[in-house]
Write a protein that binds this DNA or RNA. Structure first.
Lengths: 150, 150
DNA sequence: TGACTCAGTCCCATTTCAAGACTTAGTTGG
DNA sequence: CCAACTAAGTCTTGAAATGGGACTGAGTCA
């Protein structure tokens, strides 16, 4: 399978991974969530090769996850901002971060702590059911073919 | 940056991606959550090259995400099962799936529907705060350096 | 005995990646 | 006016990862 053939699949995970599933993209998005917006800032923080960064940003813009906005003319300069579609990735990103915290933080504790502004507490993420609000685990879920499965 | 240098980083996302962040691993885990356990079943369902699958499975076993169990002797055969650590990835995986559903399903609807066995409803995933139980979005969260940040 | 199964390993051509030089448009300092 | 500098890239080149397919080994089945 070629990688961009994934987007043709009828699996939502495959389609998602076709957008954000490569080695660098989620790290780029992590920085975007930390309000990094400019090419050279991404580069400096990630140590990513210029060519690869340029390509990833272009792809994310093409997919509508980031948008390119002019922040100055003369010389013309753009910055990359998360769209709503990009912001929607936050739960997935935070779940991955918290998995890392839980399983790799060691005794020193997690490198980053997240505070929920609404309630003021440090928290970790819990996946819950949109219908009943209860926490959901892997074995509480039944996956069945949906309307878009044919 | 070489990819496995990521595991040295003090960012939990980077450490997580060092384990599950490559092109194939999350698709392998998707199958594992669907109770696929054997080498050739993974292969048949994913179309992944044998070499790459063998390497990914070995890496996941090494990281404790899967475990290798004997399911028959003569000839000796093993299967791969999710450990608790592996099961803990479910929220992240489901969040990615639901992001794909939301943004790429089109009018046909999602290819797979998830039913919450506990309450009996079809649902989508919501990320909520472990402290107050309210849904959490990208801009409700303040990230600060934690104890493991030095 | 010969075909078949499962779980790999090995090899090679193609693709992707990393690192760093180069480019372009404009600004700042002397 | 000239040189140095900045931001956001593109280009080139060698190294690494991937895909596809052949091969292996232990054992079963007809």
């Amino acid at each position: 399978m070629r990688w961009n053939e994934l987007s043709d699949e009828r699996c939502s995970l495959a389609r998602t991974l076709a957008v954000v599933g490569d080695r660098w993209t989620l790290l780029v998005l992590r920085e975007a969530f930390l309000r990094v917006r400019r090419f050279d800032d991404f580069r400096a923080r990630l140590g990513i090769a210029r060519r690869v960064l340029a390509e990833r940003l272009a792809h994310l813009v093409e997919e509508g996850v980031l948008e390119k906005q002019v922040y100055q003319t003369r010389p013309l300069r753009h910055e990359y901002r998360l769209t709503q579609k990009g912001l929607d990735l936050y739960p997935a990103l935070l779940s991955l971060v918290h998995w890392g915290d839980h399983h790799y933080a060691g005794r020193a504790g997690p490198p980053v702590v997240h505070t929920h502004k609404t309630c003021g507490h440090d928290f970790h993420s819990v996946l819950s059911c949109s219908e009943c609000g209860e926490p959901v685990g892997a074995r509480d879920v039944l996956a069945r073919p949906g309307p878009g499965s044919a």
